[in-house]
Computed example of a mutant assay.
Amino acid sequence: MSNGKGDAMDPKGLIRESYRIEGISEAECRSILMDWALSLAPGQDQRQALEALLALYGVEGHPMTKLMQEGLSSVARAGRRGGWRGRRGAAGR
């Protein structure tokens, strides 16, 4: 995108730019990915956004690809918290 801005899936163009940085480290990608997650619109489906961005930019062996794939698996595991907090949330409704 020529205006330097992103779209709904990558509002700041952070993911796109991370793939353009030669020699980027996993730590740098982790920081960028956190900033990306915070820039999503409230209520936006992170899983859908990650899948779309992986399809668009994913390059085997790139640290951002690895982190986004890990993010997909952690989003899939997210669910009810265990222990008393999980039970208390359900009982207090």
Score class of each variant (00 low, 15 high):
Met1Lys: 13
Met1Pro: 12
Ser2His: 09
Asn3Gln: 09
Gly4Lys: 15
Gly4Leu: 06
Gly6Asp: 04
Gly6Ser: 12
Asp7Arg: 03
Asp7Tyr: 09
Met9Ala: 15
Met9Gln: 08
Met9Val: 07
Pro11Gly: 01
Lys12Gln: 15
Gly13Cys: 04
Leu14Thr: 02
Leu14Ala: 02
Leu14Glu: 00
Ile15Cys: 03
Arg16Gln: 05
Arg16Cys: 06
Arg16Ile: 03
Arg16Tyr: 02
Glu17Cys: 00
Glu17Phe: 05
Glu17Ala: 14
Tyr19Ala: 06
Arg20Lys: 14
Arg20Met: 09
Ile21Ser: 01
Glu22Met: 05
Gly23Gln: 08
Ile24Glu: 04
Ile24Pro: 00
Ser25Tyr: 13
Ser25Thr: 12
Ser25Gln: 13
Glu26Trp: 13
Glu28His: 10
Glu28Leu: 03
Cys29Ile: 02
Ser31Glu: 14
Leu33Tyr: 01
Leu33Ser: 00
Leu33Glu: 08
Met34Leu: 13
Asp35Glu: 15
Ala37Glu: 14
Leu38Phe: 14
Leu38Trp: 14
Leu40Gly: 00
Leu40Ser: 02
Ala41Trp: 04
Pro42Ile: 02
Pro42Cys: 04
Asp45Val: 05
Gln46Asn: 07
Gln46Lys: 09
Arg47Val: 03
Arg47Met: 11
Arg47Gln: 10
Ala49Leu: 09
Ala49Asp: 00
Glu51Ser: 08
Ala52Tyr: 06
Leu53Gln: 08
Leu53Ile: 14
Leu53Asn: 04
Leu56Ala: 12
Leu56Val: 08
Leu56Gln: 14
Tyr57Val: 01
Tyr57Gln: 03
Gly58Ser: 02
Gly58His: 03
Gly61Ile: 13
His62Met: 05
His62Val: 00
Pro63Phe: 03
Lys66Gly: 06
Leu67Ile: 01
Met68Pro: 00
Met68Asn: 02
Met68Lys: 00
Met68Gln: 05
Met68Trp: 03
Gln69Cys: 06
Gln69Phe: 04
Glu70His: 09
Glu70Leu: 10
Glu70Thr: 08
Gly71Glu: 05
Ser74His: 14
Val75Trp: 04
Val75Asn: 10
Val75Gly: 01
Val75Arg: 07
Val75Tyr: 08
Ala76Asn: 10
Ala76Tyr: 09
Ala76Asp: 15
Arg77His: 06
Ala78Leu: 13
Ala78Glu: 12
Arg80Asp: 12
Arg80Thr: 15
Arg81Ser: 14
Arg81Ala: 15
Arg81Ile: 10
Gly82Phe: 03
Gly82Asp: 07
Gly83Ala: 06
Gly83Ile: 09
Gly83Phe: 08
Trp84His: 12
Trp84Lys: 08
Arg85Tyr: 08
Arg85Cys: 05
Gly86Val: 09
Gly86Leu: 07
Arg87Asn: 10
Arg88His: 07
Gly89His: 10
Gly89Ile: 12
Ala90Phe: 11
Ala91Tyr: 10
Ala91Phe: 07
Ala91Pro: 00
Gly92Gln: 12
Arg93Met: 11
